Simulated scan of single mutants.
Amino acid sequence: MAASSSSASNPKNGLAFESFFEGWLVRQEHYLDELQSVLGKHEDSKDDEYLKELSARVFNHYQEYYDEKSRMSNHNVFLLFNPPWFTPFERSFFWIAGFKPDLAFKVAAAAAADLTAEQKEMIEKLKIEVKVAVKELNDELARVQESVAAHELMTVGGKAPSGDEMGEINSVLDELQAELVTVISNADVLRTRTAERVAAVLNPVQSVKFLAAVTEMQVRVRTIGLEKEARKR
């Protein structure tokens, strides 16, 4: 897929996001250190209010990423489907330009092994809701991608399109680009809300364990990806 507008193809947009992302990763590692430090304390010394405040700060940190990503998508949504700031190994975990929402359930199950029967039941219900939402977004993405492919064929082979035809093609592609922005936005909302709703089921200590495990997983996946790329070079 290729963007039709000059702003969408401007490489500076990607470079600006990559610069933001590098700083965001540094802050992410600082949060991981704080989460792990808190978990290292004796159970009786943990302050529930502080744990809640820390969890809120971590969620706000992730929201900063999605806010910046949203701005990036309005400049070049196509780049988000093959983002150069992620390694191929990281992208192997992706679903619609980001980590799969159901990873939250797997991480929670591993990080908070002391879930009560009621907590497990609530998470199972949430799994069903997320599965339905994922299918709906998959169907919507497939529809948009088919439309993009069909209209790109209009510019390949045969007689070159006239000025009016080219204007119509660009108009259609701009519309499809807007639809892709919406699909990614909805996928990101699903990702964040799934994590937030999982954390809401957990108690303060479990929530911090969950967020520490999520953050550690992402840091670890990135480290492995960078190591793989270094070996290739």
Rank of each mutant, 00 (worst) to 15 (best):
A110D: 09
A110Y: 14
A111D: 00
A111H: 00
A112K: 04
A112R: 02
A112C: 08
A112T: 10
A113W: 06
L115V: 03
L115D: 01
L115T: 01
T116K: 01
T116M: 02
T116H: 01
A117L: 05
Q119D: 02
Q119I: 01
E121F: 07
I123D: 03
I123L: 10
E124P: 03
E124Y: 05
E124W: 06
I128N: 06
I128L: 11
E129N: 09
V130M: 02
V130S: 01
K131P: 00
K131I: 07
V132I: 10
V132R: 05
L137R: 01
N138Q: 07
D139Y: 04
E140H: 15
L141G: 01
L141T: 02
L141H: 06
A142N: 10
R143L: 12
R143W: 12
V144S: 03
Q145G: 14
A149H: 06
A149K: 11
A150C: 12
A150W: 14
M154Q: 10
T155A: 10
T155Y: 05
T155Q: 13
V156E: 13
G157E: 14
G157C: 08
G158H: 07
G158S: 12
A160I: 12
P161V: 05
P161E: 09
S162A: 07
S162G: 15
G163Y: 13
D164G: 08
D164C: 10
D164Y: 09
E165F: 14
E168D: 12
I169L: 09
I169R: 10
I169K: 08
I169S: 08
I169H: 15
N170Q: 14
N170W: 12
S171R: 14
S171V: 13
V172I: 15
L173S: 10
L173W: 10
L173H: 14
L173N: 11
D174I: 07
L176V: 07
Q177G: 11
Q177R: 12
E179H: 06
L180M: 03
V181C: 02
V181R: 01
T182C: 02
T182A: 04
T182V: 05
V183L: 00
V183P: 00
